[in-house]
Amino acid sequence: MIQVALDRLTKEECISITEQTYDHIDYIEIGTGVIKEYGMDIIRDFRKRFPDKKIVADMKTCDAGKHETRQALEAGSDITTVMGLSHDQTILDSIQVAEELYKNVLVDLLEVPVERFARLKELGVELVSAHIGKDTQDHSEGNSFEHYGSLSDDFTVFVAGGISPKSVQQSEKLKPDVFIVGGYITNASNPGEASRTMKEVISKR
Rank of each mutant, 00 (worst) to 15 (best):
K134F: 13
D153C: 03
Y102Q: 15
E29P: 08
A57T: 04
I28D: 09
E74V: 12
S94W: 00
N143G: 05
S86H: 08
R119F: 10
I30Q: 09
F50H: 11
A118L: 05
F46W: 11
F117V: 00
E111F: 15
K134M: 13
T61A: 12
F145W: 09
D108C: 01
K60T: 08
Q96S: 14
I25N: 04
L127Q: 12
S94M: 04
V107W: 01
I42H: 09
S144N: 12
G31S: 01
V56E: 02
T32G: 14
G76V: 08
E126V: 13
F117T: 03
T156P: 00
T69W: 06
E141K: 11
T18Y: 08
Q137P: 01
V112L: 09
D63W: 11
K53M: 06
E37Y: 00
T136D: 15
V97W: 01
D52C: 04
G65T: 05
D58M: 00
D78N: 14
I42T: 08
E146C: 07
A75Y: 05
G124H: 02
V112W: 06
I15K: 11
D63V: 11
V112P: 07
Q96G: 03
A75T: 02
F50Q: 12
A72Y: 06
I15Q: 05
E99M: 03
I79V: 15
T80P: 03
V82Y: 02
A57C: 05
K48C: 01
E126I: 10
G142P: 07
E126H: 14
H139N: 10
D108I: 10
P51T: 09
E141R: 11
D63G: 09
V157E: 03
Q89L: 13
K60Y: 10
E74N: 13
V56K: 04
G124C: 07
I17Q: 10
E19W: 01
Y22W: 10
I79H: 04
T80I: 04
H131G: 00
M40G: 02
N143M: 01
I35C: 09
V125M: 07
